[in-house]
Design a protein around this nucleic acid. Sequence first.
DNA 1: GTCTATAGAATGATAGAC
DNA 2: GTCTATCATTCTATAGAC
Lengths: 226, 226
Amino acid sequence: MTRATKTRKGRPKSELGPPANGNRTRIRARNEDNILDAALEVFADCGFKGATIDQIAARAGMSKPNLLYYFRRKRDLYLAVLERTLDMWLEPLSAIRADGDPAEEIRAYINRKLAFSKLRPTASRMFANEIIQGAPLLGTVLQDGLRGIVDEKAAVIRGWASAGKIADVDPYHLIFVIWAVTQHYADFASQVEAVVGSGLSDRKFFRETEAAIDHILLRGILPPER
Amino acid sequence: MTRATKTRKGRPKSELGPPANGNRTRIRARNEDNILDAALEVFADCGFKGATIDQIAARAGMSKPNLLYYFRRKRDLYLAVLERTLDMWLEPLSAIRADGDPAEEIRAYINRKLAFSKLRPTASRMFANEIIQGAPLLGTVLQDGLRGIVDEKAAVIRGWASAGKIADVDPYHLIFVIWAVTQHYADFASQVEAVVGSGLSDRKFFRETEAAIDHILLRGILPPER
DNA sequence: GTCTATAGAATGATAGAC
DNA sequence: GTCTATCATTCTATAGAC
């Protein structure tokens, strides 16, 4: 009775306005980009339910019905935004090379992930919002895409640990720690800003953050002379 | 024209139902607790805007108007929930002793914070939700209470570093790293669960997590023989 | 393709009986 | 203190003119 999953036809969802008779205009591409950019900001600031189509349309410089011409439903727009940035979110992990220098590969991974937090803090916050609430809309989409690549890279790191090239730490926890630390500076930027008055967009603060994280995760905080 | 900040009288907000003529019943205390417990769950799962009073009332086992008898506005309830758990959130940091053994104090702090993530994951997620969106409702309440204690403990940690008792790392970044890592296992539990199939409520996984975090943050991941 | 107008649903909050 | 009934608002989404 509840759970009325309405007309779910076999069509590729979350896509396109009316099936045009052959038009793939440049104006469409530009408007869709504008909408996705605007939606990212608003969803990150307000969450899915808190964001309104009016807000997003205003920020994209168009009317609400006009926006709904490109994305028929709010949920379609939400998922389109997440999917557009998913590759960027995964890329730093994918780039880990099994044949590189272990410590240097991990340091480079940390730095790539921190660079993502600097360049795309809004995308990071939107993902964080979705995951904190249990990924109710993204569902298994992210999770499925995630587990495979994480397992693969965890095996690589485990190999390094077995060979004594790095300390013997659980590779999954190492990955979680790196995610946690690097994303913290994007997701909780308002708190960081409130405490120290700076964020990653400040070049000096970014360098200090990178140095501190690299030091702590690679060398720990015990004094040099043990 | 926009921004119609309506009748904001000088009354102490976020409090109590009708100014009773002297009743401070036990039933009130019990109902308020039930409501706050239910609200915590729903706000953490859905965010402020996504949560509905109906949902919270149903989970608390009462009707919507009855809930609104105790908390006149949704926002009042939201802030009451956050305030009720704020002390618990800050306690692990407050407990750091300047006269203890530095490395052991920091390890104990990490473990207290991780224990909080295990015992109160929902409260952690609700705070995370609020902060990710820029703390629009909590405003300066949390930030003011936070900065003082953080500055104080950062000075303690800096003293340890200057004395060579721990490595020379920026104390603020060390605190941020500890927050990030320990809270990750509560806030992003759905992601952790999706990747490794466990969470902090699993005793074995909790011990492994604690060991891995302690190792990485205290000793780093470079191999023992440098 | 873009707009105005509006339908239809959900929800925060109140009134008033009991 | 608790309930039913309801108002008023906000919002998603659609219809249809241009």
